[in-house]
């Protein structure tokens, strides 16, 4: 079973990975150990592959640093559900192939430490007998996500989704 790690509103990219722990500063092999080093110091040592993150509004505001969500990917974070995402960060999540779901209700209903199972293809999370529906990603991204990511789509087709 996956654990839910719940965060609040306005989790910024310095929270997700402080600038001083960028791979550029501490090395590509070590930087993920510092995910949420200030905000949730026990996170990096205890997160298990498959765990999911819950956020409030404006998840990922701030820096364009893609290595912040990349640290989460290296730690095996399976998805992020938030009430809203900051623009650059959302692109980064899509580019890295980390499922990012927009939901006003799921972040309210799940609590930190919950044990859940999920199916992100059909967009569902289960906690015990309860089922929570997640909205599908925006239509324009589905073509890219079907290939894995925008990068995968571009490699395969030599153009961007929607481009003739």
């Amino acid at each position: 079973m996956a654990r839910v790690w719940k965060f609040g509103d306005a989790v910024n990219t310095d929270d997700i990975l402080p600038g001083k722990y960028a791979p550029f500063m501490v090395g590509e092999d070590k930087f993920q150990r510092y995910a949420f080093a200030h905000l949730q110091p026990e996170f990096a040592a205890n997160v298990q592959p498959g765990d999911i993150l819950i956020g409030g509004r404006n998840w990922g505001l701030g820096s364009s640093r893609e290595y912040a969500p990349r640290a989460l990917k290296k730690l095996g974070v399976a998805a992020i559900v938030a009430k809203s995402f900051a623009r650059i960060h959302y692109r980064n999540l899509v580019n890295l192939g980390i499922p990012a779901f927009l939901s006003d209700t799921v972040p309210e209903l799940l609590t930190d430490g919950d044990k859940v199972t999920y199916d992100f293809i059909s967009g569902r999370i289960w906690r015990g007998d309860e089922e929570y529906k997640l909205p599908p990603p925006p239509e324009f991204l589905q073509a890219a996500l079907a290939e894995g990511s925008i990068l995968d789509y571009y490699r395969k087709h030599g153009r961007f989704p929607g481009e003739s």
Partner: peptide
């Protein structure tokens, strides 16, 4: 502003979405 993958795609293709 954009992240590393978007920037790499922009450098390679000369374009972006």
């Amino acid at each position: 502003g954009m992240g590393a993958t978007d920037i790499a795609l922009a450098v390679a293709s000369g374009r972006t979405w």
